[in-house]
Amino acid sequence: MAHETERDVHHPTFKQYLLIAMILFAITIVEFLLIWDRVGIQDDLGATKIPLLVGLSVVKFYIVIMFYMHLRFDNKLFTRIFLGGLFLAFLVGLALLGLFTAMNGDQRSYALDRAIPYDEHAETQKVAEATTAETEKPPVAAGPVAITVGAKGDELAFDTDSLTADSGAEVTITFTNPSTVNTHNLVIVEAGTKDAVATDGTAAGPANNWVPPGDSRVIVNTILIGPGESGEVTFTAPAPGAYQFVCTFPGHNFTMFGNFVVN
């Protein structure tokens, strides 16, 4: 077993192991000294300290795998297998970071655009149910008004064909999509323009929620609401008159629309 004996000869001695342990301790102390004056302070540490801290931990990582896990003295195949896994782990990390930061730009604004206020949501829905379920009459109050609209199951239709509001009132429309397959939006447009807006929306693409950006015919629109999701949009009801609400998802506008009347 010459191979085994040879390996044992190269194994570090007690003193060497102790030295390695002390080096690891020393690095940890240096790391701590680098940041200890910032404890309890909100800070991003600056551009010099972060690479330094990452570098020091890489050194520690290296020392442990090379000496404590004796990769330095062992067969190279073990090193390759381990570093292979580590490399793949880095790829996974980069892919995730890329997915969330590069492709959507700023993930904060992305999240905020799609955020649904959780607490208020339940209340507005209750109020809205009480108002619409009984009469479907225009709300009397000129103050903030809550309206709930849903898609009709998996059909390409809204569950109501008429909505009303008082001009100048602050209206919050909560749109729920109970469908298991279809994605919808809710766009309020000037009377008689629903199909033209939908055609232009198709050209604008899903990145614009299938709504032509900056179009004067569009009063307000929700973002795309996926199956089982809901979203809301708040706006000031426009001048009295006739308007339409429509889903501009390509093809839906022919059956999925209704009248929006402002008194």
Binding site: I81, F82, L83, G84, G85, L86, L88, A89, F90, V92, G93, L94, L96, L97
Partner: peptide, 13 residues
């Protein structure tokens, strides 16, 4: 251990 790197790598990422 190589595969566990992936496990922790995903959580850290």
């Amino acid at each position: 251990l190589g595969s566990d790197c992936l496990f922790f790598g995903a959580l850290i990422a």
